[in-house]
Structure formats: structure tokens, C-alpha cells
Amino acid sequence: MTMVYDALILPFIEFAFMQRALAGAIMLSLSACPVGVFLTLRRMSLTGDAMAHAILPGAAAGFLFYGLEIVPMTIGGLIVGILVALGAGAVARLTVQKEDASMAAFYLISLSLGVLMVSLRGSSVDLMHVLFGTVLALNNDALILIALVSLLTLGMLGIFWRALVAECMDPLFLRSVSRLGSPVHFIFLGLVVTNLVAGFQALGTLLAVGLMILPAAAARFWTQQVAVMCFLAIAIGLVSSVGGLLLSYHVSLPSGPSIMLSAGVFYLVSVVASPRGLLLSRLPRAVHRAA
């Protein structure tokens, strides 16, 4: 018993930095995972990835002028992220070009600007910090930011839930009964950006999107209801966060990748072992129903 306690509980009781990391990861899971569910269902998983890269120049601009400070980096990331989301979304909605192409164009421009700006100043250590984050060094500002983003996200999801589901399931139907289609799309993109910005301090710009996509992608294998899928994704996100933090603590691994890899394990197990996964759907069933 004490061994289990020592391994799983004690690190969080003993060290303040572990408590902060845990609090940050829990709040991020609560908001980023359901956003990720809709991101994957809308086949925008790679859009999330693109957005994560796109916020880099904003964060870099903040970094360039103020050093490694959370507020300017966050505001910068937010502004650039929203610009890219609006730009790519507008091109997709108003021209013949589809969102994947416009998003790729905007994020590539944005990413190269970002790398250029970071390289103007600072060593590769700084770049690594911006790209991969440090969940074990979350300060108060960062925690407050993450808390605000979680609250905002859960609130918006609660209010626009029905429209978001309808827009994902049958957008043309939503357009025929309501004008909320386009607004809800942009609100959703806004949520993606804010969650990425909240996550990059903890997980870095490259991995922030992982906490959105991996639990959601894993959850899809287990359920046929979008609400259940959201709760499952949150649960997987929470367990992966705690597991990843403990792994990084005990084996001295970088925390961000540890969390992502824990979620990755959930995903791979789901791919293989879930009712609709590789194994069970391939197995010949001895019994089937009469109708």
C-alpha cells in the first residue's frame, strides 16, 4: 500500500511544482479534450496542428520584446491565432478554396515568420522552451490563464452545444433553420486558438494540440454519442496527464512528451482493442442477431 502511495500520491503532496503541474493539466484536460472531440469530428485534426504552429509568431513577438513572460506571449499568440483562423476561415467560406488548403497556406506563412523571429534573438534553448513548454514550471500567471480559458471554454460549449452538434452533424440543416452556422464555426475556431494558447505554456506550441486530439481520437472508438465521447475524452486526458506527470517525475523524462505518450498509449490500445477497433471488427462473429 505504502509503495503505491509513494509512487502515485506522494510526489503531488511533497512538491509544489508537481501540484501546480497537476492543477494545470487537469484544467487543460477539462477544456481542451471536449474541444478536441469536435475538432476530430469535423475532420479538422490537422487544422488544430496547423493552428498550433500558426500561433508561434505571436508568441515569438511577445518573447522578442519582453523575454520569457507569459502575458505578452499569450496575447501575441492569441492575436496571431485569431488572425490566422479568421483569415483561413474567411477564405474557405467566401471563395472556392477549401479550408485545408487555405489553413495550410496561412499557417506555413505564420510558422516561418515565427521561426524567423525566434532566431533573431536567443539561443536554441529559448526556441526549445517555446516549442515544447514546461509543465513543471507553471507560475501563478500561467495557472490563472489556464483557469480562465477552461472556464470560458466550458461556458461556451455549454451555451452553443446544440448548434455545434448540429453544425458538425448536418451543417446544411442548421443553415435552413438558423443563422448560427457561420458564427458557431468561428466561435469554435476561437476556442481552439484560446486552448492552444493556454496549453503552449505547459506543453509547448507543438504538443498543446496533442491533448486535444489524442484523447478525442481514442474516445471515438468506444461510443456512438457525442456527449459520452466528450466525457470519455476528458477522462482519458486526466488519466494521461497524471500518468505522464508521474512518469516524468520518477524516470526524469520531459513532462510534455510524457503526457502525450500516455495519451498515445490510450489511443493505440483503443485502435486495437475497442469494439470497433482493429481486432474485434475483424474477428469472425460466431453469433449474430436475427434482425
Binding site: 469530428l41 458538425c168 448536418d170 446544411l172 440543416f173 471515438r220 456512438q224 454519442q225 457525442v226 465521447m229
Partner: peptide
Amino acid sequence: QSELDRTFPAR
């Protein structure tokens, strides 16, 4: 041509 996404997790 319905834009209904038949793969959406819904009953």
C-alpha cells in the same frame, strides 16, 4: 445532397 455526416457519433 444532404451534408449530413453519417460518421458522426449520433443515434
